[in-house]
Amino acid sequence: MTEPAASTGAEVTAVSATAERGARLLRLGAAELVTLVEDAEGRYDVALESVGGTSLRAALPGGGRWGQTRRPQA
């Protein structure tokens, strides 16, 4: 999602486990790279998370726009 978002004018902050792994995201147009969600500063309109675990909750302080995050029903 980094390349399409950046190419349409979005300012993308990418999160990657290491700077080395995230270098590709910078080449694809990310304006900033952090290795911890908690290190991302500012206000964000959209948060896309594809890994799972605690990173989504960390990306949406207070549970996000809808008040909570939850797992889909099985």
Rank of each mutant, 00 (worst) to 15 (best):
T8F: 01
E20I: 11
E3G: 03
E20K: 15
D45A: 09
E49T: 03
G29P: 11
P61M: 04
L26N: 06
R65N: 09
M1T: 15
A5D: 05
R27D: 08
E20D: 14
R57L: 12
E38S: 15
L26S: 08
L56H: 00
R21K: 14
M1H: 14
R65F: 13
V51L: 05
R21I: 02
P72E: 13
Y44W: 02
G42A: 00
L28C: 13
A31H: 07
L48A: 01
A14L: 13
D45E: 08
A6V: 01
A5Q: 07
S55F: 06
M1C: 10
G52T: 03
A17K: 15
E41D: 14
G53T: 04
L48C: 02
E41V: 14
A14H: 10
L26K: 12
E38A: 14
V34A: 05
M1F: 15
V46I: 07
G29E: 13
V15F: 06
L26W: 10
A74N: 11
G64V: 11
R21P: 00
L36S: 07
V12R: 01
S16R: 09
L25V: 08
D45P: 04
A10Y: 09
T35K: 09
G67N: 06
W66Y: 13
R71E: 14
T18K: 00
L60P: 02
G29S: 13
L36R: 13
A6G: 04
R57H: 11
M1L: 15
T54F: 01
L25A: 11
M1D: 11
G29N: 13
G52Q: 03
E32Q: 13
A23D: 12
A10Q: 01
L28R: 14
S55E: 03
S7Y: 09
G22K: 02
R71H: 12
V12W: 01
A17P: 12
E32H: 13
G64D: 10
D39E: 06
S7T: 07
T2V: 15
R43F: 05
G52I: 06
T69I: 15
Q73F: 11
R57A: 13
A10T: 03
A6D: 01
M1Y: 15
T8C: 03
E38D: 14
L36W: 09
G53Y: 09
G53A: 02
T18H: 00
R65Q: 12
L33T: 04
E32A: 09
G53S: 04
R65L: 15
L48V: 02
P61S: 04
P61W: 10
E3V: 01
A31W: 08
T13I: 08
S55Y: 04
R21T: 05
D45L: 07
G52K: 02
D39R: 08
L28W: 14
R21V: 05
P72F: 15
G63E: 07
P4G: 10
T69E: 06
G63H: 09
A17C: 07
V46Q: 01
Y44P: 00
L56F: 04
S16L: 01
A17L: 14
A10K: 03
Q68F: 10
R57E: 13
A31K: 08
A47V: 14
T2C: 06
G63F: 09
L26D: 04
G64N: 10
R70H: 05
A14V: 12
G62V: 06
R27K: 15
V34G: 11
A47D: 01
A59I: 02
V15G: 02
T18Y: 00
G22V: 02
A5M: 15
G67F: 10
S16N: 07
G29A: 13
E3N: 08
A59M: 03
